[in-house]
C-alpha cells in the first residue's frame, strides 16, 4: 500500500481494539443496532471462515447454522457498530479460507479446538 494511502487511513479511520482471532475460531460479535432513536446490542455467534483485506478495509466473515440454514455475515473489522468481539473457541484449521464448511453439515462441520 502506498504511504499516502496509509496516511489517509490512519487519519480518517479509528482502529478498533479487538482480541486476536483468525479463521477457524468461534466468536461472538456484539453488534450495535439502531432502531429509530434507540440502540441495542445484538449477539451473533459463529465460526470465522475468513479474514479479508487489510488496513481500514479489512473485514471478516462469520458463519453459523440458524435452524439448519447456513447464515454468513460480513463485518468490517473497524466498524464503529461492533461493540465487542468475544473469542469463544480457538480452532485448529489448515486453511485461511474455510469455504469447505459450506458443503458440510452436522458432525462433519465441526472444527477441532486447540489444546491449551
Amino acid at each position: 500500500m502506498s504511504t499516502l494511502l496509509k496516511f489517509v487511513e490512519d487519519q480518517l479511520s479509528v482502529k478498533a481494539n479487538h482480541p486476536k482471532f483468525k479463521a477457524g475460531d468461534t466468536v461472538t460479535v456484539n453488534y450495535k443496532i439502531k432502531e429509530g432513536e434507540k440502540e441495542r446490542v445484538q449477539q451473533y455467534q459463529g465460526v470465522v471462515i475468513q479474514r479479508k483485506g487489510s488496513g481500514s478495509t479489512e473485514s471478516f466473515t462469520v458463519r453459523k447454522m440458524s435452524n439448519s440454514i447456513g447464515v454468513e455475515r460480513v463485518f468490517p473489522v473497524n466498524s464503529p457498530y461492533i461493540d465487542s468481539i468475544v473469542v469463544n473457541k480457538v480452532g485448529v484449521v489448515r486453511r485461511a479460507r474455510l469455504y469447505y464448511l459450506r458443503e458440510l453439515t452436522g458432525k462433519a462441520a465441526r472444527i477441532a479446538e486447540k489444546k491449551q
Partner: peptide, 8 residues
C-alpha cells in the same frame, strides 16, 4: 490517483 479506501 493514489488509490481507494473506505471510511466510516
Amino acid at each position: 490517483k493514489i488509490g481507494m479506501t473506505s471510511i466510516f
